[in-house]
Design a protein around this nucleic acid. Structure first.
Lengths: 206, 206
DNA sequence: GTATAATACGAGTAATTACTCGCGTCTGGC
DNA sequence: GCCAGACGCGAGTAATTACTCGTATTATAC
């Protein structure tokens, strides 16, 4: 239970076998987190599951926190990539098209590995450092802001920053909880329609 | 780091001095959680801050988890009490009155001790047992459901369960994040107006 | 083929921390 | 004033677990 600071990798893998090692470590971490939860995810257990030694793990991750950070980043990127590409595709689409598509994308992104997403968001001890890792959200917020400005003549709420906040929080929170707590909601399309309605009515007052 | 199960108090305080002890323990726990965060909240540190011995702490709480559970319950009850009484007062009030009042109440409830609420929700390791502690939410969901049924002739969304889910999640999530991340939003009334609009437009389509 | 760097290994260490237990003190009822 | 039980005490224990370090193995450059 020593404390260290750096979140960056201790050493970058240079040969193929070490790249495989790093991959195996991340895969094992994700697997254990999803299947057994955070408190079973000891570094020794992760190394064992990855089929490598504990020493090798610490050759690439200076401490446990950096390992979790790396996994969070990887997972965030996967989700963000989906949503971002959708947002860019929809930049010129009107609200009535874009919002439902966005909601669909966010739900789909959360459905990739809901349990991992949950553990990453709710179980992992959130040190100061890890708090800031929500930069994925921030980038999406930026894109969303750009989109809303693009269509600002059709949007009623005037405070752009607040609107972005309300929109992104609402979508994220609803999709996240729904995937975890109400899988039945997600399987048919009623839920995404309702969420889309919620947002569309707010934005357009129509 | 031993593991135990029971979340119920080991022993009920019977004399006044022990009731004071229990109070002091809970107060110290809340104080340390808000000021220093979860990982500084060791049982020994809590006992020290409470001005009692570690042995006394374990006379009333069989393990650390039960202590956290007790604090969560106390805090949940404080919040729920506010929201519930508002909901009951507003049972016969139309949506246009009730929804803004509800939003105000939820914001006010979250503003009591935002940092404690955050730590309780985000930092404390969520064992299976603690997950279910969200019964406060459930009770509020019931009341909200009753209210919506009472006014169902003025409400468009037909799936009551889903509507309750969407409403409660949205309010909770927006108020929670706003209080923590955007205190400036909360200080003027624009934010609560926007949130009220979001929900009202969705419910009434007007 | 050899030198050098990269990678892998894993038994061991140090630090933390939840929790116990035996004993001392206080309180209330009689 | 005495006694039984409630309450308080805190040094010590046991278990866990993140992390090190000296050594062995493998790849690459020449």
């Amino acid at each position: 239970m020593l404390r260290k600071r750096s979140t960056i990798p201790r050493k970058l893998p240079q040969q193929d076998r070490s790249r495989l090692t790093v991959e195996a470590i991340l895969e094992a971490t994700a697997h254990i987190l999803t299947e057994e939860g955070y408190d079973k995810a000891t570094t020794n257990h992760i190394a064992e599951r990855a089929g490598i030694s504990i020493g090798s793990l610490y050759q690439y991750f200076p401490n446990k926190e950096s390992l979790m950070a790396a996994l969070m980043e990887q997972h965030s990127n996967e989700i963000a990539a989906l949503v971002e590409s959708k947002l860019q595709d929809l930049f010129d689409a009107p609200l009535e098209i874009a919002i439902p598509e966005l909601v669909r994308a966010v739900i789909a992104a959360h459905a990739i590995n809901p349990r991992l997403h949950q553990v990453l968001n709710e179980e992992i001890p959130r040190s100061e450092r890890l708090q800031q890792m929500q930069k994925a959200d921030e980038h999406i917020a930026k894109l969303l802001g750009a989109y809303l400005r693009r269509w600002s003549d059709r949007i009623h709420p005037q405070n752009l920053e607040m609107t972005v906040f309300i929109l992104s929080r609402t979508v994220e929170s609803l999709c996240h909880s729904a995937v975890i707590e109400h899988p039945s909601f997600v399987s048919n399309s009623q839920f995404e329609q309702e969420v889309s309605n919620l947002l569309l009515l707010y934005l357009t007052r129509a």
